[in-house]
């Protein structure tokens, strides 16, 4: 019964998003045709949000469901679409594992962080810090910034990998991991497909 319920729920959600898009499109068209530009713009913003939600759900489908020994937490899957504000647009989040041995992947469109990460990547002598807490690496051919963060209580290290893909930022965090572990697991994130879908 449970197995049957899940596909029905997913289908119903997809249909409702489709209906929202169609509804907002009708509103945008009629408002524009009657010269009501502000209502047309508002309806289009809603459509952008609907589209970002649809794109986010497609991206979730291609993200790995397991990272090493960490399984993904389905309940934590999160997609947000927003047409306004800083970091506007798509936001996708998936978490893995539990507590101290957890990790997550975030995909953020138009993140304000992108400019500073690109600046780090453009200047190699800035990118590699002398204490080894930050370095520039390559993942699947993409340049990325790898940061090492040590937990002051446990003394164990965690890593954060930031990969800018034009206006999309992919952030991969892993607690209690080694550098080789995070760079190896990062290869299971389909960066090129994400770039294609999120642009």
């Amino acid at each position: 019964m449970k197995k049957l319920f899940i596909p029905i729920f997913i289908l119903a959600t997809a249909v409702s998003y489709g209906q929202e898009f169609e509804k907002n499109l009708t509103t945008a068209r009629s408002a524009y045709n009657s010269g009501n530009l502000n209502d047309a713009r508002f309806a289009m913003e809603q459509m952008l949000r609907d589209l970002d939600m649809a794109i986010g759900k497609e991206i979730l489908k291609i993200l790995p469901t397991k990272l090493g020994d960490r399984n993904f937490n389905e309940k934590d899957d999160n997609v947000t679409g927003s047409a306004m504000g800083v970091g506007s647009g798509l936001f996708v989040h998936r978490s893995y594992g539990e507590a101290a041995k957890s990790g997550d992947i975030e995909i953020i469109n138009n993140s304000p962080m992108i400019t500073s990460i690109n600046a780090i990547l453009a200047l190699p002598f800035v990118g590699n810090s002398s204490d080894g807490s930050q370095k520039v690496v390559k993942v699947q051919g993409y340049k990325a910034v790898l940061n090492r963060n040590e937990n002051s209580e446990t003394g164990k290290a965690g890593y954060s990998l930031q990969v800018p893909l034009n206006n999309t930022l992919v952030v991969f965090n892993l607690l209690e991991a080694s550098e080789s572990e995070i760079t190896q697991l990062a290869n299971s994130i389909p960066l090129s497909k994400i770039q294609q879908m999120a642009q």
């Binding site: 289009m44 913003e45 952008l48 879908m197």
Partner: peptide, 16 residues
């Protein structure tokens, strides 16, 4: 979807 988003952004640009 991303093509749809591009067209929609162009439409919004036109309205603005």
């Amino acid at each position: 979807y991303n093509e749809a988003r591009y067209s929609l952004q162009q439409a919004m640009l036109g309205v603005e």
